[in-house]
Amino acid sequence: MNGVAARTRARELDRQRRWSVVRHVVARAAVYAVAAGAALVCAAPFLWGLVTAFVHDRGGPGASGGPIRTGRAPTAEHVRFLFRSTPFPAFVVNTLIVGSLVAVVTLALALPAAYALARLNRSWGTPARMAILLVYLVPPSLLFLSFSRIVATLGLADSFWALVLVYPTVTVPVSVWLLTGFLKAVPVDIEEQAMVDGHSRLGAFARVVAPLVFPGVVAVVVLAFTLSAGEFAYALTFVWSNARMPVSTGMPARLGNGDPLLWQSMQGGAVFVAVPLAMAANLFLDRFVAGVTPHR
C-alpha cells in the first residue's frame, strides 16, 4: 500500500521536475527572444540607415522596390560626400566643443552642490534637493522664448556660447541627483577619518571623497554630453548659421530637405553620431543604475 503511494509520489515529483526544466528552458528562450527583439527594434532605423548609406543611388524617386535589389557592390560615395561636401564635420566639431564645455560647467556646479546636499546636513537639504530635481522637469519649450530674448541681450545670438550658457539648466539638475546618490555611497567614516588624519572638510572632500566618486564624475560627463548633443529646441532657437550649428539641428535643417543623395549621406552621419554616444553610455550603464538607486 505504502509502496504504491510512494511510487505515485515519486512519479509525481519526477513529472514536476521535468515540468520545471521545461519552464526554465521556456523562460531562457523568452529572455533571449525579448533581448534580440528589443535590440533589433531599437537599432532598426540605424541598421536601415547604415545599409542605405552604402548602396548606390537609384537615380531619383519613383522607382519601385528596395535599394538592396539593385545588386551592385556597396559604395562609400555617400559617406565621402558627407564628410567632404557637407557641413557635417563642422556640426560634429561644434557638438563636441559644446558637449565638452557643458560637461565641465555641469561638473563644476553639480559636484559641490551634490556634496552639500549629500553630506553637509542642513535643514534645507531635502527641500533643496527636491527643488533642483524639479527644475529638470521644466521643459525647454517653456523657456526658450525668454531665453532667446536673454541670449540676444547678452550678445550671444547665433553663437554656440548661448548653448553652453543654457544647456547646464538641463544637465545640472540630473547630475546633482545622480552625484548625490554616488556621494551617499561613500562611507561617512572614511571622510571623518580624513578629517581626523589632518584635513579640513574641504581637504577631505578633495583628497578622499572626490577620487572615490570618480565613476560618478565620468557618468555625469557622459550624461552631460549625451543630453547636450541631443537637445533640439534651444539649438534651433539660438543658432542659425550653418557653421555654428550642432549636429542635432544642423542635420535636419540643412540636410533634411534636399535630394535623396543627401538623405543617404545623412543616414551614415546619424549612425556615426549615434554609435559612439551609445557606447559611452553603455560603459556607464551600471554606474547610472548604481547612482539612481537610493542608498542607505
Binding site: 528589443a38 535590440a39 533589433l40 531599437c42 537599432a43 532598426a44 532605423p45 540605424f46 536601415w48 540607415g49 542605405t52 537609384r58 531619383g60 524617386p61 519613383g62 522607382a63 528596395g66 535599394p67 549625451t226 548633443a229 541631443g230 537637445e231 533640439f232 549636429v247 542635432s248 539641428t249 542635420m251 535636419p252 533634411g256 535623396p260 538623405w263 543617404q264 545623412m266 543616414q267 552621419g269 546619424a270 553620431v273 549615434a274 554609435v275 554616444l277 551609445a278 557606447m279 559611452a280 553610455a281 553603455n282 550603464l285
Partner: peptide, 27 residues
Amino acid sequence: RLLVLLPWTTPVALSAISWRWLLDSAY
C-alpha cells in the same frame, strides 16, 4: 545593451530623420 541604448543616446532629431527615412521615403 549597446543597441538598446541607441534610441536614448542618439540626438532625437537624428533618430527622427532615420525614422522618416525608414517610414516615409522612396527608400
